[in-house]
């Protein structure tokens, strides 16, 4: 079983708990072992950079250092913001000796040292690259036939640009959904921001962004929105009622983690992946 240094991130301990349990279940089913980092700390999401950039990189580096110490090569994050932070900090550590020195001075206080040698990826990338779409498809026992899914990439999974990848119109999420037997819809908002980082600080702007996303998904007849990030998921799921109040709409579209949809398709018991009865009947009603 290939092992991965798994960094769940803070959201997965509270609001994103269903993401956590479904990520672990699906990984196991696919033959991957996610080993949670020991004593990891918050990576700061989008909230440290406004205060101190070096502190932001240092806090992320502590997690990278713990991962390096574990002897594993792969660092996996299920949260898009954690992923972006870890990815870029790791690459700056490789490129900038001066930055690395500053950070390592601070890390000494916890008897750690970082080199920037981890291969940092998001969970969805690990599934697609290391297991492969074909392998995943072979394991599908309960195809999500007829289920129209809006693949929601959001921002930080695809941006900033890392290499030469398509940041405007990525396709891998659609590929994964098709392998599960679902029907990925096309819609313009798939990489548009949901405003998650603004929900507390600028609620008006955030709700406007959620509204536009919901509108686009619903207009294109999605049955469910699939996410790859706890912040997106919570933002789009939980604030629908507030959007409805604010804009006089009546959205009630379910929002699920991509790992939950994978879990259903792979035949994992729904309650082990945090899928309630209403979600399940939705996924199955379209099969008939």
């Amino acid at each position: 079983m290939k092992q991965y240094a798994y960094y769940p991130g803070c959201s997965l301990e509270s609001l994103g708990k269903n993401y956590h349990i479904s990520a672990l279940e699906v990984s196991r089913e696919l033959g991957l072992e996610l080993k949670e980092l020991e004593d990891w700390n918050c990576c700061g999401a989008t909230a440290y950079f406004p205060v101190d950039e070096l502190l932001a990189y240092t806090l992320v580096s502590r997690n990278l250092a713990i991962a390096e110490k574990s002897g594993l090569q792969d660092f996996v994050a299920p949260c898009s913001a954690c992923y972006k932070n870890a990815y870029f900090t790791n690459s700056y550590l490789q490129k900038d000796a001066d930055l690395a020195e500053h950070i390592n001075y601070a890390l000494e206080a916890d008897n750690l040292h970082v080199n920037g040698t981890m291969k940092v990826r998001h969970l969805i990338e690990v599934f697609i690259e290391d297991v492969g779409i074909e392998e995943i498809q072979k394991k599908v026992s309960n195809p999500l036939k007829g289920l129209r899914v809006a693949p929601y990439y959001g921002c930080q999974l695809v941006r900033p640009r890392k290499a030469k990848e398509d940041v405007e119109n990525p396709q891998y999420f659609e590929g994964l959904l098709s392998a599960l037997g679902a029907e990925p819809i096309e819609y313009a908002s798939k990489t548009r921001c949901c405003g998650g980082s603004l929900i507390i600080t600028n609620r008006k702007a955030a709700l406007d962004m959620v509204h536009k996303l919901l509108q686009d998904a619903v207009k294109n007849n999605a049955n469910v929105i699939a996410t790859t990030c706890p912040m997106c998921n919570v933002n789009v799921e939980v604030y629908q009622s507030q959007v409805n109040r604010e804009f006089g709409t009546d959205f009630s579209i379910p929002v699920m983690y991509f790992t939950q949809l994978m879990g259903i398709a792979l035949g994992i018991e729904p309650k082990r992946i945090g899928v309630g009865a209403s979600m399940l009947s939705l996924a199955q009603s379209t099969v008939s």
């Binding site: 803070c10 959201s11 301990e13 509270s14 609001l15 700390n41 918050c42 700061g44 999401a45 909230a47 440290y48 406004p50 205060v51 101190d52 502190l55 806090l59 507390i200 600080t201 600028n202």
Partner: peptide, 24 residues
């Protein structure tokens, strides 16, 4: 009247006090 500055500062305080964040 901006919430952002205070929010960022609180966030950092929380991390320094616990190492983890908890939105609620």
């Amino acid at each position: 009247g901006l919430i952002g500055p205070e929010f960022s500062e609180s966030f950092v305080k929380m991390i320094v006090n616990s190492g983890r964040s908890f939105e609620p």
